[in-house]
Amino acid sequence: MKRTAKKTGRRSPLASVALLGIGLLFTGGAYVVVSQTANATSASASASASTASDLVDEGQKLFSANCATCHGTSLEGTGSGPSLVGVGAAAVSFQVGTGRMPMANQGAQAPAKAVQFTDEQISALAAYVAANGGGPEIPDESLLQGNGDAAHGAELFRTNCAMCHNVSGAGGALTEGKYAPALNTVTPQHIYEAMVTGPQNMPVFSDTNLTSTDKQDIITYLLYVRENASPGGIDLGNLGPVAEGLFLWIFGLGIIVAFTVWLASKSN
C-alpha cells in the first residue's frame, strides 16, 4: 500500500505503473460510490456511521500491512514495538503524520522524515487505533489558531518544555543519543498531539497538567516566535552563546585580522 512517489518532469518507467494505479483507484472509487449509493437507499441516516466503520476497516488493512510487524496484529505490541491500545488517534496522527512511523530502523529515537501515507490513510489508521481502546483525540481546530495568551504560553513553555526543547524551541540533546527536536517547523496540530500523547521520550501533558487552553497558549507563543523574526537581526539559529562565540571568532575576528593584514602589508 505504499504511495507512489511523486515525480515531476520527464516520464519515468514508473509512469505506466502510476497510470495503472490511477485506473485502479478510479475503479475502486467508483465501486465505493456505487456501493454507498446502494446502501444509502436502505439506511441514509447511518451513512456517516457506515463510512466511519469503513474507515476503521481501511485502517485495519493498512495497519496489518504496515504496522503489525512491530505493534502486533491487534495492537498488543511485540518485542520491537510498544502496545498501541489506548494511545488514541492523536498519537497516530503525530507519529505517522510527521513521518516518524513507520520507523526506518531501530535506534535511540524515531526521527521525523518524509511522510509515508496520504492524509486519508492516516485518518484511517487513526480511526482504527482509536476504535481499539480509545485515547487522546485529534485536537479541535479552534485550539490551533495561535490566538491564545502568548505571555502565559511563554511562561508555561519555559517551565515545562524549555529544559529539553530550548527556550526558543531550537531543540536539545537528551541522554544516550536521544534528543528533543527543534519546534520551528512543527505544525500546531502536531505540537498539540505531542503534548497529549508524549511521543518518544517526551512526557505526557494531560489536560489535568496543562489544560487545553494552556496548550493553546503554548502554541500561540511558539507561533509568535516563529512568525516574528528576531528584533536584533540574524538569529544564528537561536542557539545562544555557542553560536555567538563561533560567529565572533570566525567572522568578527576573521574580518578584523584581514584588516590588520591589509594595514601591515607593504605597498609594493
Binding site: S168, V242, G245
Partner: peptide
C-alpha cells in the same frame, strides 16, 4: 556592523530569571 546585523543575547527570548526552569543549550559566553 555586526551589532546591527546579528542578534546577540536575545534576553526577551530567555524570559525573566526564575530558579526553577533551565533551558536546554544553556551555555556561558565563550
Amino acid at each position: 556592523a555586526i551589532g546591527s546585523l546579528v542578534t546577540i543575547n536575545p534576553i526577551w527570548a530567555y524570559g525573566p530569571y526564575d530558579p526553577s526552569p533551565v533551558s536546554a543549550g544553556t551555555q556561558p559566553d565563550w
